[in-house]
Amino acid sequence: MANELKYEWSLAYRVEHWVRVIAIAVLVFTGFYIHWPFITGGAEGAVMSWMRFFHSVAAYALVLGLIVRVYMALNSTFDRDWKDFSITKNLKDLPDMLAYYLFVNDTHKDYRKYNPLQALAYLFIAALIIFTTLTGAALYKGNAFGFINAAESFRWVNTMLGGESYTRIWHFLSMWVFLIFVGVHVYMSLLQAAVNKDKTFMSIFTGYKLKKTS
């Protein structure tokens, strides 16, 4: 069985991925600070102001990143991979993948780009980004993008979740879901690289992955 290097992630995909990584890292760090300010400011400076500033900037990056990713999924210049995210198809294939991960089977079917678990997880993350953005926007008192009065436009989110204090809780808990996702995501790519020796982990840096040729 020969393996050959395949160009899996074009530059656009890698940039989009790393922008998202940085955005999530900044959001989590600053978010923890806003939740419970663990650095005390001195006589001068504005720790909290800066944290909130970077939190907003990273939030814009996260939202715009998702919009760009949706565009990439629909545009043929990029991989045009929206069909890979079909919920019905992926749900049908899910047992095969779960059986592999839960040690029932030692092999799994070949999937084009994302295995069903992966595709569903990424779809879930897209939904999570939307949810976190909505709750975040409902807590934001400024003008989103400079012209959307966030507090007014997203008050329905607060109403739906049972008040602004509950929106805060949901916003905070959704961050934990991101953290858990990141943990599992990194683990799985390391696992794949270790077990199959196909350079999965390095592929998000270099773009190249080893593929079986048959």
Binding site: G183, V184, Y187, L191
Partner: peptide
């Protein structure tokens, strides 16, 4: 508290990953 829920979920994930590894 939300903190407790987050911490429990985080630890559970870490344990799960370790077991799987």
């Amino acid at each position: 508290t939300a903190d407790k829920i987050g911490a429990v979920a985080g630890v559970a994930t870490a344990v799960g990953i370790a077991a799987h590894a």
